[in-house]
Design a protein around this nucleic acid. Structure first.
Lengths: 151, 151
DNA sequence: ATGCGTGCAAATTATTTGCACGCTT
DNA sequence: AAGCGTGCAAATAATTTGCACGCAT
């Protein structure tokens, strides 16, 4: 985890952004942000599982709603690993993914892009624009497996 | 559509790549590639609908299988627009997306990046690496709608 | 001739939605 | 006091999978 802000700072930043965008600050929203700070790339269900210990009654629907709100304010990014599951993480510039098409393994890649998000926002009229680069390919192990049957 | 290759050239390229990667060249695979050349960002189901006119009997399962194979050889890229639907397109460098978190509108963005896909492949051992930049945000109309209730 | 790719249909499962209550503002 | 956010549970629909046949190699 290579965050530029510590958990407390992220918390404060999110609170500010929620307010700025007309969302209420709720304990569930903050809890999910903190969880995302600690976890790798949880799915909605994993987040739900982790939070049921903290909040005895918390529903999956709330997790989805909250993630959606957090995406809207540019704090969370969802991405699909493999076709099926959807994973979420705190948005960080320069933090990208390389995903195996076969086994859905996710490799984190930190690299500078020369992409100007502000400019994209300006030219398109979009708000809260986040950017991420997704690499796709076949990992070495899967490449072996795929060619193996042909031997 | 700003393809560097015409349809025939894409066809030949795909045939070669299929062979190179140990996949068979089938009419369904070529048909899907040609369709992707013509269509914007079809979903699997839209592809299926379009092909049923050409192939009287063609199943959705085959569409999914084929798309997956084409992804593996780096010809097709799938991406999620909104959380629900999955869309597919021919892979082109410098062709990226800006997606609205609310209405899932897709804006195509062509921009040069300083991303070196070959280097990523080299450093990670992945094969057939494709790259795409995905921008997310809230489009102007949805931003209006979201703030409207607060007025 | 062999075996992969296809078609069919059933199964799985992630995600969404509507409604009533409680908490934040 | 008012209304958004939450929780619950049912509904929705995209995607996957197994099996048998035909076609490409």
């Amino acid at each position: 985890m290579a965050f530029f802000l510590n958990k407390e700072q992220v918390r404060e930043q999110v609170k500010q952004r929620l307010k700025d965008n007309g969302y209420r600050v709720t304990s569930q929203r903050l809890a999910i942000v903190e969880l995302l700070f600690d976890l790798e790339h949880p799915t909605a269900d994993e987040i739900y599982q982790s939070l049921t210990s903290e909040f005895s009654n918390m529903s999956l629907a709330t997790v989805y709603n909250t993630l959606h709100s957090l995406e809207n304010i540019g704090t969370v990014r969802g991405f699909s690993c493999g076709e099926k599951c959807f994973r979420y993480e705190l948005y960080q510039e320069n933090h990208h993914h390389l995903i195996c098409n076969e086994c859905s393994k996710i490799v984190d890649i930190f690299l500078e892009t020369c992409i100007d998000t502000a400019k994209v926002a300006e030219q398109t009229g979009f708000k809260n624009v986040t950017e991420s680069v997704e690499f796709r390919g076949i990992c070495a192990e899967c490449a072996d497996k795929l060619s193996a049957p042909a031997e």
